[in-house]
Amino acid sequence: MKRVIEKTVNLDLDGVNGNTFFIMGAFKRQAKREGWTQDEINEVLKEAKSRDYNHVLSTIKNHCEIKECDL
């Protein structure tokens, strides 16, 4: 699947509640933390909601990438 925009957020969805609203909310909160514009967030969410549950999940996962952080 092609990314809607060429950006990802540092978010691990493994083990996350499978509710679509929870998934989209987690993505939205993290994208805001990482400085995404509202237009960028809306573009991804619009595409995610354009079809069924599996499309929501695959679209959001496609814009998530677990990044290692130095402690």
Rank of each mutant, 00 (worst) to 15 (best):
M1H: 09
M1K: 08
M1A: 08
K2I: 12
K2V: 12
R3F: 03
R3L: 12
R3T: 10
V4Q: 10
V4N: 08
I5S: 08
I5C: 09
I5Q: 05
I5P: 07
E6R: 15
E6S: 15
K7W: 11
K7T: 09
K7N: 13
T8K: 11
T8E: 10
T8D: 11
T8F: 12
N10H: 09
L11S: 02
L11H: 02
D12A: 01
D12T: 00
D12G: 01
D12P: 00
L13V: 00
L13F: 00
D14M: 01
G18Y: 07
G18V: 11
N19C: 12
N19F: 12
T20F: 10
T20E: 13
T20L: 14
T20M: 13
F21K: 15
F21N: 15
F21T: 14
F22T: 15
I23S: 06
I23M: 08
I23K: 07
G25M: 01
G25N: 12
A26E: 13
K28Q: 14
R29K: 14
R29A: 14
Q30I: 11
Q30F: 05
Q30S: 07
A31N: 04
K32Q: 15
R33E: 10
R33D: 06
E34V: 05
G35W: 05
G35N: 13
G35P: 07
W36P: 06
W36R: 04
T37K: 07
Q38R: 04
E40I: 03
E40M: 03
E40V: 03
E40K: 05
E40N: 07
E40D: 13
I41T: 02
I41P: 04
N42L: 07
E43P: 02
V44D: 01
V44M: 00
V44R: 00
K46Y: 03
K46W: 00
E47C: 08
A48V: 08
K49W: 08
K49S: 15
S50D: 09
R51C: 09
R51M: 14
D52N: 15
D52I: 13
Y53Q: 06
N54F: 15
H55K: 13
V56D: 03
V56T: 14
V56K: 04
V56Q: 03
L57W: 11
L57F: 11
L57G: 05
L57R: 11
S58N: 05
S58L: 05
T59I: 07
I60C: 00
K61W: 02
K61P: 00
N62I: 00
H63R: 03
C64D: 01
E65R: 11
E65A: 06
I66N: 04
K67G: 02
E68H: 07
E68A: 10
C69A: 09
D70Y: 06
D70R: 06
D70G: 04
L71Y: 08
L71Q: 06
